[in-house]
Design a protein around this nucleic acid. Structure first.
Lengths: 119, 119
DNA sequence: CTTTCATATGAGCAATTATTCATATGTTTC
DNA sequence: GAAACATATGAATAATTGCTCATATGAAAG
């Protein structure tokens, strides 16, 4: 006996209960979009590199750019995106803007991803 | 005393040690791209919905499409992407193709993301 | 207050991507 | 084998996105 549901196709038996269960446990649409938007932040290698750097140490913008060999402008644009997502934050220190992780979930999310990729 | 490094900008003191530490702990480029590609899978709401459904129960393609009110073609295209990423797998059962999660990391990654979004 | 340094920002462009539409493939049923 | 059904796929399109280049902002140093 399988657990396949029958909504529109001719599977042996209908399983409205499974459908109902799925419908109930699905987060609402807003949450789903928020969730996808969050993961979008990790879905670009430049942002991923920035986050890896900041996982080790807070750092000013130009040092991040230099360390990663990516243009200052590109870094700045991505930092803005990451700030909007509230994953990083910054403070001024003299002429420099120091960036740092604003959320501990960043570490655990990346770690989960890493353990998938590295196995 | 701060931990800010000095690569190209005029911060009080050079911190080559921090730079070195970051350079050492950064995964190689291939891993970084793989990691970003993995998270890209979670960065689209359609794929996120599909994964949520499959976290509850395996299900055939047309039921997923019906349940999510997304066209069969769109679902099929995204299923292909998810299969290529080895996040889901499928088997034939009569006329239907049954899809199911192929990786337990999916759950833990999404859970980490959810706990960020829901707080 | 002018210059310099660090960062931000906007426009423009190229690349990527998610969807739709039409159609192909493959399985079952009659 | 023909018809019906479930799924896959390719081309075309629209939207999103990440980068570059030029320039603006804003703090600091002289």
């Amino acid at each position: 006996m399988n657990v396949i549901s029958d909504i529109i196709c001719d599977t042996p038996e209908p399983h409205e209960d499974v459908i109902e269960k799925v419908r109930e446990t699905m987060p609402d649409d807003d949450t789903l979009y928020e969730l996808a938007d969050l993961f979008k932040m990790f879905g670009d290698s430049t942002r991923m590199k920035i986050l890896f750097v900041l996982m080790e140490s807070e750092m000013c913008v130009c040092d991040i750019a230099e360390l990663l060999s990516i243009s200052q402008s590109a870094i700045s644009h991505q930092l803005r995106v990451l700030k909007q997502a509230k994953l990083i934050s910054s403070r001024r220190e003299g002429k420099n803007i120091i960036c740092f992780l604003a959320d501990d979930h960043v570490r655990s999310i990346i770690d989960q991803g890493l353990s998938h990729v590295l196995e």
